[in-house]
Design a protein around this nucleic acid. Structure first.
Lengths: 338, 338
DNA sequence: AGTCGGTCTGGGAGCGCTTCCAGAAACTCG
DNA sequence: CGAGTTTCTGGAAGCGCTCCCAGACCGACT
């Protein structure tokens, strides 16, 4: 550490300069009552003349509250930073923090086995709570944190059966919306390119699709799983096409996969949406600029971050009766593929 | 705050369980010497059985060092989070922090007049140092921080005449590289679309271009300024075309503006690179996917973040003779526009 | 006058840790 | 075997703050 130029003034000095006790100075600084106007004035003077600003560390130690929360990315940092989804969540979190006086500590796994040290850091009193963005479901971190008594809110439904509050997009109903839209358009045989079976988003979007179709008495046999990648989407589309020649619509569980499907369709000379309608999910930047522009289910990503933050802050306030989880409504964005 | 389930064990308890004094326990935990094997063993036992982890806050207070640094974005957060440049810097910073045991605190301006509270936070002992990404040059924050004795490293050359260390891409020589390449290709009249006159990047890239051309005895009259936006680039290109009909090459100070220029050129039926060669700057994602793929000067953005971190850490170590600033070399990426 | 509520104040303990210091214990060595 | 070292240890004083508590002071009521 560099030795700082001027010494940082402490509360004691402020008190001394103002000619009052430390207690009184503290009261003034924290805007507490039971302080005479004279004392208040003197302290205010001293504060400005000394350029005093309270040492947060000491305050935190005394109050057992740090005024900062962690945004934990329990994935390897590099992988996630390029992800626009993450950037938007971060944006939402940041917006949600506005005016709360809380600071954001960014915590990302460095190595694969960094979880221990992260849990350690989090539970050792450095932050008041944590927002966890955990991309794969079987992550033990959230459970550990909750067990240690740290307020935690997750981004996305956890797969593990742990009682930790989370905020997620309403994937189930979003997929339902898409399916319903396709049905309403008179599509007879609606397939789906689903996400991985071991991710909550994949599962939820699949079951939403399935439920809506079966309620409408339509077949739910045309299912192909993929891994949310472009290539995966392409392969799944091929697969669907061979297995179900009669398909006239497909709900794809992510925009990126949908773009892949679109490629395949174009390659085969199948017209979209005339022959086969396509609906994606996410409304990522890709959707608007694909050719043709993708009809998709928008999930409110910034809102996700904002809501997580709200949920955590509410927990700080001691709000009781907080919903254990909240699902954010999705919106069907109609463009040209359906 | 939520009341935590189990009480967090303190060093005192560890000491008690291990049957030693707090001092000894502390020594063991910090791996200090002058501790008997027996004591060491007993404390280790106690630590694991209690699940003890040191309270960072208290430690920080006692040691006057927080083991965390701030990444300060003195721009409004929303604006910057969508920016891939920022994401890549963050990535570099994160990578640079690996293994240092330091945590990253993300600080972004919320409102316009949030600077005061940011400076306050930073100088009140919450972090050991700060990395500042300040996009517009006349920001007073860096100077304030330095004045308060906080180690600071800037991203990008500051415009203000303050002695604060910074890390930047070598914009001057990068622009020179581009110009030289165009000259070597036999281009006679090389223009430039420069950035704003009040931004260091703009200035440096312009002077690099100018210097190389004048060393080669070429005219440096074809200059149009723009604001680093697509539209700005288009307007500037139009302007250049009318003012200097003989132009056969143009160095554009950013990829985005270069894409704009490309649009204009195509619109006018001017062939690139046959009639006019174009070289951009940044090698952002846009460059590779533009049509035709853009020849451009790559600046090592992740490296920027990593180097800033290195510089800050070196300053912590008390390294003397640290370069006040470091410029990272750029690289010309030849694609098809020149 | 005596008592009471209300306002204001300073002393002091405590948050959980590090670290200085002095003393105890265990070694060396002439 | 005592003096001098070297290891080891616990006590205690901080770090800068909050907050409880007891007491001082005030005007106002019986």
């Amino acid at each position: 550490m560099a030795e700082d130029g001027r010494e940082v003034p402490t509360l004691d000095e402020v008190a001394r300069v103002a000619g009052v006790s430390r207690s009184t100075a503290s009261r003034v600084i924290n805007g507490r009552t039971y302080v005479s106007a004279k004392a208040r004035e003197a302290v205010a003077q001293a504060v400005t003349s000394l350029g005093y600003s309270p040492n947060m560390l000491a305050r935190s130690l005394a109050m057992k509250r740090t005024n900062s929360i962690a945004l934990v990315v329990s994935e390897h940092g590099d992988r996630v930073l390029g992800d626009p989804f993450f950037a938007r969540v971060l944006r939402g979190v940041h917006a949600g923090l506005a005016g709360s006086g809380l600071q954001l500590v960014l915590l990302m796994a460095q190595d694969e086995q960094d979880h221990g040290s992260m849990a350690n850091y989090l539970t050792s009193g450095h932050v008041d709570g944590a927002l966890v963005v955990s991309l794969h479901g079987e992550d033990p971190l959230p459970a550990q944190l909750v067990a240690s008594g740290l307020p935690v809110v997750l981004c996305g439904r956890p797969l593990a059966k742990v009682a930790v509050p989370y905020v997620d997009a309403d994937n189930f109903n979003g997929a339902g919306q898409a399916a319903q839209y396709l049905i309403d358009q008179g599509r007879r045989h609606v397939g789906t390119i689903a996400g991985p079976r071991d991710m909550a988003v994949g599962i939820d979007r699949l079951s939403g699709w399935r439920r809506t179709l079966s309620m409408a008495g339509r077949p739910t046999d045309a299912i192909a799983h993929a891994d949310f990648s472009l290539e995966g989407g392409m392969a799944a589309m091929e697969q669907l096409l061979t297995a179900h020649p009669g398909l006239d619509a497909v709900f794809v569980a992510s925009d990126l996969m949908a773009i892949g499907a679109l490629h395949v369709l174009r390659g085969r000379g199948i017209r979209v949406p005339e022959d086969i309608a396509v609906v994606g999910f996410d409304d990522s930047g890709l959707a608007a600029t694909s050719v043709p522009p993708l009809t998709t289910v928008r999930q409110p990503i910034e809102e996700l971050g904002r809501t997580m933050t709200w949920r955590l802050l509410a927990q700080f306030e001691g709000d009781v009766e907080l919903p254990p989880s909240v699902l954010l409504p999705t919106e069907l964005i109609c463009r040209e593929t359906a």
